[in-house]
Design a protein around this nucleic acid. Structure first.
Lengths: 398, 398
DNA sequence: AAACCGCTTGAATCCAAAC
DNA sequence: CGTTTGGATTCAAGCGGTT
């Protein structure tokens, strides 16, 4: 193994931000001086190098594993020019069985390195994605979505014997069915998408032009370089600034470049000398975006909880105040302990949520939006009082 | 077995257009009088009935097998109404192994019935499609394309924990890698698609409204009825008039209805009484189209919907860029995820529209016309950038 | 007549912290 | 660990009734 980017071999394999005490205790031992988040390319074989990383240490894995294209002979365009197909030696596998064994091995190794809350992204085409998806399920990964990358400018089908192969498939999965706490920046994504939730089909152009790395002879450096925009959406969707992103098949370094720009740490593993060198140069030239463009906005889901009782304690609601629903039909009275009592009923006392549900005959209810108070002749949901209290407490309340 | 639609048991299981001499020579014996193309629903179990059909007798198979959804609890919409989930017994499998065995069995049986030049279509979601695809490859099928059905009106993700599951996947495969002569109506498809090749991502709405079959109580008859437009494109793409289409999981009979309308013969197998009866009625009411109309349906080019995030992703706006209103008074900074942050305020982050509204104290705002960027000393509304991107995308957007 | 509003619904692996 | 409780969460279409 040879460590290439910032840091040394020793530092790379030993560093870990929050030691989690995996199988390799020596890995988690000397942590102190290592910069974090890591920003390193490991030159070596994925399986070997993955096994050297500390267990449960990364927040997100992105993998673009080699495809099993099995192209027989050269594909030609109608004008007889040759298509530069993906037929490098590393991309040939003797059989499905060999590919499955390879897939199972790297997925298992990657899974060990994932934190319990981490998620995994894999990209592939119909040549390999079905085998990968099935293997992921067999290994216990829990699929969250499959995502379709619709290519804005795909290569046409020259022979006219099939549909234009205009997409690739990504699988997004948690480590296990019961995995909790994975990152999904729902509100941010929605906010950037005309205020509607983002769908499972994404449209991006291929990586071409200036973005496409070239070798000395002006040919494309890597046969399957992915567009940075695609990787950026992945990292912005499913990771936070400061998280560590692992790419076991780094290739031309797109994942590292995007991670660095977006303030994520990364660990990339790559076997080929040429790719390692190119990725190193490429990533070194990246300037991270300023925090102002990155830091996560406060989401309602993550805001600290405020009990209704504290509104009463702080005097924002006086005991005895009457609450109503939006239309003023249902009524309740605020009690000093922060519970409320439905008016007219018998002994219906409880939380704003329970009583809201009871009043509607529903199983559940968000009392913050159901109940209203009348102030200055207008009815406001009590949620605005909560927002006011959060603001007073110095908590960003949106 | 009970034969339901036109014909009798004997005729159905013995007929074959061009006897190909399969394993069951008695099946191919008495062919003469049977009407052709066949138009029959077989009431029975797929595996049993497939094994009774003559070998190498059908031109196209369309299969919509159980998805094995593995749903846990009930799901509610934000308004507390319950989602009518697919909880039928036929969708329940004990394990992946059981589902794989089922998949392998019906695929093997279907393959025997396919002519050497026939192709197979299967539809599924991420719950099952990877397992099906891998099994198909294992059995020797040769994948020609995977096709994405993009749903125009999918059900949203109510809890905001994943991307909207907005597509399903179809796999199109030949019987073997060396299969010759499969049907692909390239010219007709292209002619109906503004003279560009049809891509692997298709946009169709769900089957709703009048097209959706209802039971006596006005509820949906079948939980997963597919839209006829989707099946029509498949048959128009990969079969000829007079071909025989087999559907081993007929359900509400969509494949039969479309096949009859398009002048294809069909054999549908279905186990449930109710579905058989409904499909029979439905198909009987279908009037075949005249030959002259059997061309590929025109598909309108969609106007690409552009989100602000795609301007950022595509580099037309760099994260960190300052936006202002037309007069340069209100300011905001563009973030990497396509949201914007009001400058000077506390934690005001959100979409261009919401932040525009907030800045004005208005209820709503069109962020595209409110916010401006300064380029070359002049202020432009960001709408001009959107127009630019639309122009770029319009070239290749479908 | 056309526009508008409200209601319903669709193959869904859909929560997390506190007790 | 299981159980309870707080409280966050939806988009596009079709249909029927009303303006």
């Amino acid at each position: 193994m040879r460590l290439v980017a910032k840091g040394t071999l020793q530092r790379a394999s030993r560093r870990t931000c929050r030691p989690v005490g995996g199988e390799r205790s020596e890995s988690a031992a000397a942590v102190s001086a290592a910069p974090w988040p890591p920003n390193s390319i490991i030159h070596g074989d994925s399986l070997v190098e993955l096994s050297r990383l500390p267990a449960e240490s990364v927040d997100l894995v992105f993998a673009d594993p080699p495809y099993n294209l099995q192209l027989k002979g050269a594909l030609k365009r109608p004008d007889e020019s040759r298509v530069d197909a993906v037929d490098d030696a590393w991309d040939q596998f003797e059989s499905f069985a060999a590919y499955d064994a390879f897939t199972r091995a790297w997925l298992t190794a990657a899974r060990r390195v994932m934190k319990p809350s981490a998620t995994l992204w894999v990209i592939g085409s119909y040549h390999n994605i079905f085998r990968i998806g099935a293997t992921m399920q067999d290994l216990g990964f829990w699929i969250l979505n499959d995502i379709v990358w619709r290519k804005a400018n795909p290569m046409p089908n020259f022979r006219g014997r099939r549909f234009t192969n205009a997409h690739e498939t990504l699988i997004w999965a948690a480590r296990a069915p019961d995995a909790k706490g994975y990152t999904f920046n729902y509100e941010a994504l929605k906010g950037g998408n005309e205020d509607v939730q983002v769908r499972s089909d994404w449209l991006f152009p291929l990586c071409t032009g200036q973005e496409r790395l070239k070798d000395g002879a002006g040919r494309k450096l890597h046969p399957t370089q992915k567009p940075e925009a695609l990787i950026a959406r992945i990292l912005l969707s499913a990771s936070k600034a400061g998280d560590v992103v692992l790419d076991p098949f780094l290739g031309s370094g797109t994942t590292g470049a995007v991670a660095k720009r977006l303030g994520r740490g990364f660990i990339g593993i790559e076997r080929e000398d040429d790719y390692v060198r190119a990725a190193q140069e490429r990533i070194a030239a990246i300037e991270p975006l300023p925090d102002s463009a990155l830091l996560a906005p406060p989401s309602a889901r993550e805001a600290p909880r405020v009990a209704f009782a504290s509104l009463v304690e702080r005097g924002l609601v006086v005991p005895g105040t009457e609450l109503t629903d939006a239309k003023g039909r249902v009524r309740a009275v605020v009690r000093a302990d922060g519970t409320i009592a439905l008016t007219g009923g018998t002994a219906n006392v409880g939380s704003i949520h329970r009583m809201g549900a009871l009043a509607q005959g529903a199983e559940a209810c968000n009392g913050w939006t159901f109940w209203h108070v009348e102030q200055e002749g207008r009815r406001h949901p009590i949620d605005v009082l909560r927002a006011r209290l959060r603001a007073e407490m110095g908590i960003a309340a949106e």
